[in-house]
Simulated scan of single mutants.
Amino acid sequence: MATKSILRIDTSARRQGSVSRDLADAVIARFPEAEVVTRDLAADPLPHIDEGFVTVTKGSAQDTLSDKQRAMLALSDTLIDELQAADTIVIGLPVYNFGVPSGLKAWIDLIARAGVTFRYTEAGPEGLLTGKRAIIVMASGGTEAGSPIDFATPYLRHVLGFVGITEVELIHADKLAFDAEATIAGAREQVAGIAA
């Protein structure tokens, strides 16, 4: 699948010296012809869902919505539009305390909508965002990708698959606290191997 449009999701709290941001730059550089839309969840944080949002996504009548509910629904629609428009999603994933950053969880909560990005069928849930590719760029100080204490990458793979994105590649710069130079060099080799 040729990559023509990329949605880049940055989640690192660090603006300078962020390994996940630097490696995401390297991944994006592999697709010089692609149009890139960037959603920086650290620079422009998303609100966490609340009772009002849960209520509105359960099918409340439009004329009963508060201004806050309308704004949250419009934001969710915008995020989903960005996701639907991209054929490749690049997600910078620093691992914080064995899991995903809270900003990324907020994004997930706003884009995972029944009847929009997935639906329930008699055969079980079905993702509606098919035909897309995701590249996860993981960085961690001490959590090894795929290890028993890595709760971030399996969760993110599951969520992406749940909404229909099953072609998922992982670039990992894990265990940076032990040998950052070798770890980053290894991750850059992984980036070089990505099919453009």
Rank of each mutant, 00 (worst) to 15 (best):
E167Q: 15
D67V: 11
S18D: 00
A177N: 15
L160H: 05
L110P: 00
K4N: 13
E35V: 09
L129P: 01
A106L: 01
A182W: 07
K105A: 11
I149A: 13
P32K: 07
T130K: 11
A71Q: 13
T11R: 00
P148L: 14
Q190N: 02
V137L: 06
T121D: 09
I91Q: 04
T183N: 08
D25G: 06
T64M: 13
V19P: 00
G17M: 04
T55F: 12
G127L: 03
L79Q: 13
H48A: 13
Q16K: 11
P125G: 03
I9T: 10
I184Y: 00
D174L: 04
L160E: 03
T117A: 04
G92S: 09
Q62Y: 11
E169N: 13
A34H: 08
V90L: 03
D77Y: 15
E144F: 05
Q190S: 00
V168G: 00
A24L: 01
I171E: 00
T153L: 12
Y96R: 01
G193W: 08
H48R: 04
V191W: 01
A180E: 15
G141R: 07
Q16G: 09
E51G: 13
V27F: 05
I9F: 06
A173M: 06
A173H: 02
E126F: 07
A85C: 07
F98T: 11
D67K: 12
G52E: 06
G124K: 05
I89G: 01
T143F: 06
V191M: 01
T143R: 06
E51I: 12
T166D: 02
